[in-house]
Design a protein around this nucleic acid. Structure first.
Lengths: 247, 247
DNA sequence: ACAAAAAGATTTGCATACAATTCTACTCGT
DNA sequence: ACGAGTAGAATTGTATGCAAATCTTTTTGT
């Protein structure tokens, strides 16, 4: 479904001379690049949720014309990152708390499925690799290195889904994950819930190593539910709410 | 959101003569319409899986220019219905057996989640409605009315997912369903597996009425697995394979 | 005759121009 | 003051032209 870079093409005949790194590698379509840049801008909050996105303004910003930008916007809309209204332009998707909760529920179900499929396929090598990731994450946790911890955390989940071997699942998981990347990005500043999360991750690893798909699935669902609870206690500026602390 | 027919504008001065059906009702963007038409063309096989889609050809066919068509193609690509290769055009997505199996697995997990969520929300009215759909379907089954049976079948599943109340789930389910609509369309000609499917549907209805989410989820997963098996026994011309009959 | 190279024809990618629609600010009548 | 109506600006939607890349056919060297 996703296009892959085909490197099997014959090399251009003029490759003999000294190569400047001035690669003619501008083979990348502008609309793709635009889509990527827009995703980043949304995740990092340069475009705020609910904000109107005027085509010409973004074109000036990115240095391209409206045609490829509009193509990129259609893609982002299909991914759920922006909302399009005919003749009335685009706005950055503004997820309601319900939307976020719904998204976590679905992601939870997907990860649970991933777990059940993964236990049927993993070899000892895969598990060893997961163990490495896990203990790297644990190390960052004890050191209080927040960004690295979060990055590893996400890697662990992504890797587990990959281990399912189900291409459609992987793709769907990535797409939904993309919608809440901003929430994750923001949550990146808050350190709550470390111990519980690590404990759950340990159980995940155990269940995976024991090839207990049912248990792994259950843990994952629970883990995602808890993750949602944590996110719900963070306002959109990335600070924990005062009302309750869930850890 | 709600589009209203704006009659407050001054009428075009040449409206007096007999109206061709050329309604000024062009509120709908062409790229949307194009996307819809393309989806239909793919589902109905007018564009065959793996077939190259040349822009100009489709534009002539649909009577529009390349700009809106290209926007529509990006959407279809994001939906997984076509595959885009930079500078080399688009082809209708050609799902491998593995892709189809993967898709059914994910859909199964989504429906299972839908079931668990639905039992928490449905009222007696909803259940009564599901019962009506179910018995309509049963009637079509006993009468051997294949297309109507399939249509109702799909309605039942779609309705169940709707009853989950989870917007993200509904959306994701529809998108994945769209990818295998062609398989469903083709399967429409084959009548196998009626009794078993109806039996499973009956169990689904029971579990829903009993608000037994866990059981409903299990039935749904099983049901989808069986559906996959059935689809796997149909070649792409819509005829059952001779090697084995699963009912 | 055959492979490599070159020339020509298609096809895709992007920018621009213009039409259609919506948005904004203003006028006018009560 | 105030809302309906209206000109003008701003914004989106679509068509077209041209450049870049790819595909096809022809040519050329051995």
């Amino acid at each position: 479904m996703t296009e892959r870079t085909d490197t099997s093409r014959v090399a251009p005949p003029l490759a003999a001379t000294e190569l400047t790194q001035q690669r003619p590698q501008r083979r990348r379509p502008l609309h793709e690049e635009a889509a990527e840049r827009l995703r980043d801008m949304i995740v990092e909050g340069e475009l705020a949720p609910g904000e109107r996105v005027r085509e010409q303004a973004v074109c000036d910003r990115l240095g391209l014309s409206r045609t490829p930008l509009r193509e990129a916007m259609k893609v982002l809309a299909a991914e759920g990152l922006v909302t399009l209204q005919p003749n009335r332009g685009a706005t950055v998707a503004d997820l309601s708390p319900a939307d976020i909760a719904d998204t976590f529920k679905v992601i939870g179900a997907l990860e649970a499925l991933a777990g059940e499929l993964a236990v049927e396929r993993v070899d000892d090598d895969d598990i060893a690799e997961m163990r490495v990731l896990h203990y790297q994450m644990a190390l960052h946790q004890t050191r209080g290195e927040l960004p690295e911890y979060f990055r590893l955390n996400q890697r662990v989940h992504e890797r587990l889904v990959e281990l399912s071997g189900n291409q459609v699942l992987i793709e769907t998981y990535r797409q939904l994950g993309g919608r809440i990347q901003r929430q994750r990005f923001v949550a990146n500043r808050w350190a709550g819930r470390w111990e519980q999360a690590m404990h759950e991750h340990e159980q995940m690893l155990d269940a995976l190593a024991a090839r207990d798909g049912r248990r792994l699935a259950d843990i994952l669902r629970l883990h995602l539910d808890n993750k949602l609870t944590a996110v719900e206690h963070i306002d959109r500026d990335g600070r924990p709410r005062h009302d309750a602390a869930a850890d």
